[in-house]
Amino acid sequence: MHKIAALLAATSLALSACAEPAVAEEAVNAPAATRTAKEAKGLKTAVFAGGCFWGVEGVFSHVKGVTSAVSGYHGGNAASAKYDLVSSGVTNHAEAVRITYDPAVVRYDQLLRIFFSVVADPTLKNRQGPDTGAHYRSAIVPLNAEQAAVAKAYIAQLGKAGIWKNPIVTRIEAYKAFYPAEAYHQDYMAINPTSRYIVRWDAPKVTALKTMFPNIYRASFLRDAG
């Protein structure tokens, strides 16, 4: 029965979770940050929300220096950190990804540049591509003062650069708690490479990462048990 339930959940997910897009969004070559992150040695953690977490996780899972990428929920409470509730739009959660990274290989400001270049369109409020609702909002969630300072400076830098026609609406949100999503959401791109959503929406983001950031692109997908 558990196997049947899991199969039905996966089938339902594939049909209705993240809406099927017509085309992939266009990557943007965001500039390198003028305010680089000054981070001590040792692994660090970062949280990003940028629409459906499959693609956010997928992109960062191909970045050198990232040692873990976990899909989950941020912004609400533990009781509401469930996919059916989050996707209904009745919680304060955003679909998000918690990243563990080695700043000796990839700095926080470089992760921000990747996020704005190939992960999310920062001018879209409460949506990304075909997915709509506050749970698909674009948000940066700093976990320390340095990350907050770097994020604030970079968003200001991008605003002055005038890269996008519309204003940047990506929010910097205070960290509350992060709740890992259900197991069938983890490593979704690696497990479901032929999914129509992945092929038409998220795979192009990984291709853009490879093209635009070849020095920190990792060909293999970082599999993470969460």
Rank of each mutant, 00 (worst) to 15 (best):
G159E: 01
G76K: 05
N126D: 15
G65D: 10
A37C: 01
K41N: 11
A177C: 11
A40T: 15
V70F: 01
K165L: 03
I99N: 01
N126G: 12
W54V: 09
R200L: 11
F60C: 08
A104N: 12
H93V: 07
Y154I: 04
G162I: 11
V63G: 01
P204I: 04
L15K: 10
K3M: 14
E57G: 13
T194P: 05
P214A: 09
M189Y: 12
L13H: 13
S61K: 01
L143V: 02
D131N: 09
G89N: 12
G75C: 14
I155S: 00
K160Y: 07
F116M: 06
A208M: 10
T100I: 04
R171A: 15
A148Q: 15
R223E: 08
E25T: 06
T100L: 01
A10E: 15
T194S: 11
T194Q: 14
E26M: 05
E182K: 05
A153K: 03
S220E: 15
D84N: 01
Y108G: 01
Y108I: 02
I163Q: 06
Y179K: 08
K38Y: 00
S61R: 01
D121E: 14
G50V: 05
A9R: 15
S220D: 15
Y184E: 04
D109L: 03
R137H: 04
L8I: 06
A203H: 08
A153C: 02
E39W: 00
A151Y: 05
L7W: 14
S71N: 01
A203M: 11
G51H: 12
K176N: 13
S80M: 06
L143R: 11
G226R: 14
Q157T: 08
D109W: 00
V97E: 06
F115A: 11
N92L: 12
R35S: 04
R218M: 04
L209V: 10
T132K: 13
H62S: 04
S88A: 10
K64N: 09
N144I: 03
K3E: 15
Q110Y: 08
A49L: 01
P21Q: 00
P180K: 07
G129V: 03
V106K: 13
R113G: 12
S16Y: 03
A32P: 02
V206K: 13
A78M: 10
A22N: 04
A33T: 02
P204V: 01
R223K: 13
G162H: 05
G55Y: 08
L209R: 09
D109S: 06
A134Q: 10
K176Q: 15
I99T: 06
A174E: 15
A33L: 00
K125H: 14
G42A: 07
C18E: 12
D131Q: 08
S16W: 06
V63W: 05
A78Q: 15
I198F: 14
Y179Q: 07
